[in-house]
Design a protein around this nucleic acid. Structure first.
Length: 801
DNA sequence: AAGTAAATTTTTTTT
DNA sequence: AAATTTACTT
């Protein structure tokens, strides 16, 4: 078979081992996707498996689309009776639930609505209001996060509540809100993202018939990025493979970066225990990157303790050293990046370039710099098309048409455009709905009924408006009802939701530039619907599901010359040239992960993912000052920079940089280290993991940075004399030395923004803001786990940490 | 009721 | 710095 000729022996083994459980441990760039796609093609073309018996599951739509494309490529020219299902976990669940959710017996119907995070947050807020709890004391985001965590562990509300400590007021409040939240979703016939997984798993657990049905349907199952599966996803996999066991999972424990979503690395590490007859294939040859890039990645990941040893190797040439740049501030960093990109494009306009950062918020400056230099770019993440307010409004109308019990959608559009239904009317409506125990939609139907005439606190105007709204929605429903019979295009319904509701009239009469843009966006939505009508024909519901599950990461366009995105969204992709920016303590690794060794290891895996995206050229940059919440703060180089072999890094910074200093201070030792990394010198390798003495003393670095700061700003920062700030490396060293507490009591008045401090009650924290002077000096300090606290410096008894 | 100004909060990462 | 929420006019 022709398609097999492109594979190496290991890859071939993974493709041909079609029966029974198979674990493919695939290092970065080892042709993981190739194995999956060829395997699917092989099953169809060689083994004669019907395509609809094959299921491949990914985490993102982007990965699914890519896979679909490549499989089609492999099978082009062949007429297939059906297509294999290439789906994300979530859309697979939607597919199953849309068919069989009634079997679950929880009262949900096939018309269930999907709530996104924003919708969920609104439900939390409403539930807080219902229970009379103060959102200031119990932040809705935190509650939502807690609920999601609990759900992803496979818990339900009762389990969460039963684990709450009697004295823990906060958790107790969370539990109360949790309960209301679940009830509200249930009443609205709505499922949140996590519910999609949960309800599917419960359904399979509950009904042997349904289980059997899907076991028979999907005879061959493949799971991509298996290291990122959480307990729920594992349960789903278990149920789906109960009968046939033809399961192939592919992943790399070194690239597990979704612990925050309860992904459990043990799923991949213990695969052989979960599926006793499993075979394992290791893919260790890297086809993507130069030896140098692999060495850098290896040196960083070697600092993780909890990891499976894997020896990634490549036939590729050593390639050029990676490039390092230290910028004065974020703007300079962006400017440097843009001008380097300009140079690259002049030399080779075909090479695709990526700028990778830790958080979406970092994208701004880079966008500006690129725009200034007229460099075309594509940005992944941030705002997705479906997240724009006007698009969401129209979607809300459509969701409401499909499921009028969706209170969140109803509240979103009941007064858009303005129909004179303000706070007062809505409060009345909410109250009635609560008393009657029915949804808002049903409440409207009830209280606008003739027989309640006179006994309601509703002005005739409000009543008229409610009737108007009701009429509009019924109009849409009627249109939809007709369409299910006559196959009316989705685009017609979208247009109706824009026109018949008065929405477009509202925008047109606004006569502003902004309104024009919005109308343009709605036009795009209509176009999307037209496209949809041409490609698929599964009706409005499927179109809306699509919108709900399509996320910002789906905007990746492989043809864009320059792509900006987070490291998370870059997973699975590769680029000839990569800029890894913002390598600073507190950003990458992120401040919220720095105190927990486990989370720090995940950050390091993330850094590993970032580095291994690069094929030939890798730039690593950081800046000495960084804006956080609009305030300039001192920034220190990331510890991950410290973990890279210094002699593989070329410094192109202007003037003295952290790197030039580090190199000269520890030149001899570091050459030793880097050489050892390539070879087998175990003793030297151990030194490359941070043991405290790699090349420097903290005081020297401190002196260096204080000097830098002075030079840079022309004068010392805000309050002089200069503070006794400790460097990130010093913190690191302390960490390595098992957190030896610092004894030096600093003189009062020395805590500047950016300083790391220790508080008797809250532990380690980061000073964010400093106000006032003398005895009245107030500090805003961020304590992980406790949030931001305002402290009077004089009484806070802070220590340097 | 609706629009505007002021105050307050926000950033991890994603389906 | 930007976005969201609240307070204040009209």
């Amino acid at each position: 078979m022709e398609i097999l000729s492109s594979l190496n022996p290991k890859q071939l083994e993974a493709v041909k081992q079609t029966e029974g459980p198979l674990l493919v441990l695939a290092g970065a760039g080892s042709g993981k996707t190739r194995v999956i796609t060829v395997r699917v093609a092989y099953l169809i073309a060689e083994k004669g498996i019907a395509p609809y018996n094959i299921l491949a599951v990914t985490f993102t739509n982007k990965a699914a689309a890519e896979m679909r494309e490549r499989i089609n490529e492999l099978l082009k020219g062949q007429k297939l009776p059906s297509a294999p299902l290439i789906s994300t976990f979530h859309s697979l669940c939607v597919r199953i639930l849309r068919q069989d959710i009634v079997e679950l017996g929880e009262g949900y119907t096939q018309s269930f609505t999907i709530y996104d995070t924003d919708d969920s947050l609104k439900v939390i807020k409403a539930s807080l209001k219902d229970s009379g709890l103060d959102p200031k004391m119990f932040p809705p985001r935190q509650i939502l996060y807690a609920i999601s965590n609990s759900k992803n562990k496979g818990e339900d509300y009762e389990m969460f509540a039963s684990k709450v400590d009697y004295n823990d007021e906060k958790r107790a409040a969370f539990a109360r809100v949790y309960k209301l939240y679940v009830e509200r979703l249930r009443n609205a016939n709505a499922l949140d993202f996590d519910d999609l997984m949960i309800k599917t798993v419960s359904l399979l657990r509950k009904s042997p018939e349904v289980r059997e049905k899907y076991n028979d349907r999907y005879k061959y199952i493949l799971i991509d990025e298996y290291q990122d599966t959480n307990p729920l996803q594992f349960a789903l996999v278990k149920y789906l493979t109960e009968k046939q066991q033809n399961i192939c999972v592919v992943g790399d424990d070194a690239q597990s970066i979704y612990g925050f979503r309860q992904a459990d690395i043990r799923n991949i590490l213990d695969f052989e225990d979960h599926f006793p007859k499993a075979k394992t294939v290791l893919l260790e040859q890297n086809y993507r990157s130069t030896q140098t890039i692999l060495d850098v990645a290896d040196a960083v990941i070697a600092n993780n303790i909890g990891r499976k040893e894997k020896k990634l190797w490549t036939d590729n040439p050593a390639g050029q050293n990676i490039t390092y740049y230290q910028a004065f501030d974020g703007d300079q960093e962006a400017k440097f990046t843009a001008s380097k990109i300009y140079d690259h494009q002049r030399m080779n306009s075909k090479e695709k370039i990526a700028i990778l950062y830790r958080t979406n918020a970092q994208s701004r400056v880079f966008e500006e710099a690129l725009r200034k230099m007229r460099i075309g770019y594509n940005i992944v993440g941030g705002f997705s098309f479906y997240e724009r307010a006007e698009v969401r409004d129209i979607i809300a109308y459509l969701k409401l048409t499909l499921n009028p019990f969706d209170d969140i959608a109803l509240l979103r559009v009941i007064n858009k455009p303005a129909r004179g239904l303000g706070k007062k009317t809505l409060d009345e409506l909410a109250l009635r709905s609560k008393n009657l125990g029915v949804t808002l939609w049903e409440t409207i139907a009830t209280i606008t009924d003739e027989k309640y005439e006179g006994q309601l606190a509703l002005t005739p105007r409000a009543k008229k408006s409610l009737l108007l709204f009701k009429g509009i929605l019924e109009g849409l429903q009627k249109l939809l009802g007709d369409s299910s019979k006559s196959e009316k295009p989705v685009s017609d319904l979208v247009i109706a939701a824009i026109e018949n509701t008065g929405y477009s009239l509202m925008l047109k009469s606004e006569n502003s530039e902004e309104a024009e843009t919005r109308l343009g966006n709605l036009e795009e939505l209509v176009n999307a619907a037209v496209d949809y009508d041409q490609q698929e024909k599964n009706g409005l519901r499927d179109f809306i599901d699509h919108a709900a599950l399509s996320s910002d990461t789906d905007k990746y366009d492989r043809n864009a010359p320059v792509t900006l995105m987070t490291v998370h969204s870059a997973k699975g992709l590769e680029f000839p040239v990569v800029f890894l920016v913002g390598l600073e303590d507190g950003i990458f690794p992120h401040a919220r992960s720095i105190n927990d060794p486990k989370e720090l290891e995940e950050e390091r895996r993330l850094a590993y993912v970032a580095i291994t995206r690069a094929e030939k050229t890798l730039y690593v940059t950081h800046s000495t000052r960084r804006r956080v919440y609009g305030e300039e703060m001192a920034a220190e180089p990331s510890q991950f920079l410290n973990e890279m072999p210094l002699d593989l890094i070329e410094d192109v910074s202007r003037g003295n940089s952290w790197l030039s200093f580090a190199k000269s201070a520890g030149a001899r030792e570091n050459r030793y280290t880097a050489k050892a990394l390539r070879g087998e010198n175990k003793k030297a390798k151990a030194r490359s993991t941070y043991s405290g003495e790699t090349y420097n003393t903290p005081d020297a670095i401190n002196a260096f940075f204080n000097k830098k700061k002075g030079e840079a700003s022309g004068k010392p920062r805000k309050d002089s004399p200069a503070p006794k700030e400790k460097s990130g490396f010093e913190k690191l060293k302390e960490f390595a030395a098992k957190e030896k507490p610092s004894q030096a009591e600093p003189p009062a008045g020395k805590f500047l923004p950016g300083a790391h401090v220790r508080h008797a009650k809250y532990g380690k924290g980061l000073v964010l803001r400093r106000e006032g002077s003398g005895d009245n000096t107030k500090l805003t300090v961020s304590f992980p786990g406790f949030g931001q606290k305002k402290l009077i410096e004089k009484f806070a008894k802070l220590e340097n940490a």
